[in-house]
């Protein structure tokens, strides 16, 4: 589904990604872990198409298309979704209105008729249950004055509405208490299927107790330096990132 080869990217003059290789197949959940500043969020942003980053090398194939050639909106329409680490507050735009626009643009892209008001409402009610989000919240300005947990639940709600093929969760666990974390993880788990895939970017192992990954990769200094199964996450939790840093730094030295 997603094949990343030797991906390199920088922001201004600073090299952040220095050759990422990653292969994600339908039905899989991959976790990317790593210490702060290792490039995790950059990878998520580059995949979603944020223009602040300049891709300097490598390739990304998404369902047979050159992902890097697509605009952010076309990536989304092709089935990519980024749950933001810091969802943006947008005064004056309600989640409902925003989702309706997004969903119908995607449907148009797919050659489908737009949903009418009743169909849309029905779909929304169904998806709201997944993340236990209140309709009143969705009528308000997008993320404005939402708590950290509400913002993250709103991200998962949007994901449920758009039914992406590949969802990237960028530190979705940050700033969540344990109850909110469970709700979010539960929403994600209900959306898992053999046809879609998840890339979970996180600093802590905590989230992975709830969203159990098939593969865990450790990103450090812009490269994936270690890959394994969910046991690797537990090892990291126990030993911290230092042993990996030492291994890598010694290898370079």
């Amino acid at each position: 589904m997603l094949k990343i080869e030797n991906l390199q990217a920088r922001i201004e003059e600073k090299e952040i990604l220095k050759g990422i290789n990653l292969d994600i197949k339908p039905g899989e959940v991959h976790a990317i872990m790593g210490p702060n500043g290792s490039g995790k969020s950059t990878l998520a942003s580059v995949l979603a198409g944020r223009e602040d980053y300049e891709v300097t090398g490598g390739s990304v194939d998404f369902l047979g298309k050159d992902l890097l050639e697509l605009s952010p909106e076309d990536r989304a329409k092709e089935g990519l979704f980024l749950a933001f680490q810091y969802p943006v507050e947008i005064p004056g735009v309600s989640t409902t209105n925003f989702m309706k626009t997004a969903l119908n643009e995607k449907r148009k892209y797919q050659g489908l008729d737009p949903l009418d008001a009743a169909q849309f409402l029905k779909l929304m009610k169904e998806k709201m249950k997944l993340v236990q989000i209140d309709q009143a919240l969705l009528s308000r300005s997008l993320n404005e004055g939402f708590s950290g947990g509400e913002k993250k639940r709103n991200e998962i709600f949007q994901m449920a509405m758009l039914e992406p093929k590949l969802a990237i969760l960028d530190e979705t666990d940050s700033g969540l208490d344990i109850d909110a974390l469970r709700i979010v993880a539960n929403g994600v788990n209900q959306l898992r299927s053999k046809d879609n895939a998840f890339l979970v970017v996180t600093h802590y192992q905590r989230l992975l107790e709830y969203i159990v990954p098939d593969y865990v990769h450790v990103l450090y200094k812009g490269r994936i330096v270690k890959s394994g199964t969910k046991e690797l996450a537990l090892e990291l939790e126990e030993r911290g990132y230092d042993f990996i840093k030492e291994e890598v730094d010694q290898a370079i030295a």
Binding site: A48, G49, R50, E51, S71, P72, E73, R75, A76, K77, F81, L82, F84, P87, V88, I90, P91, G92, V93, N97, F98, M99, T101, A102, E105, K106, Y109, S141, Q158, L162
Partner: peptide, 21 residues
């Protein structure tokens, strides 16, 4: 970017934001 990342075209995203403004 947030709006575009949800599949809303740049033109419509701008329109939405201006309308909200």
């Amino acid at each position: 970017f947030y709006l575009r990342a949800r599949g809303i075209s740049e033109k419509n995203a701008k329109a939405l934001l201006l309308h909200a403004f």
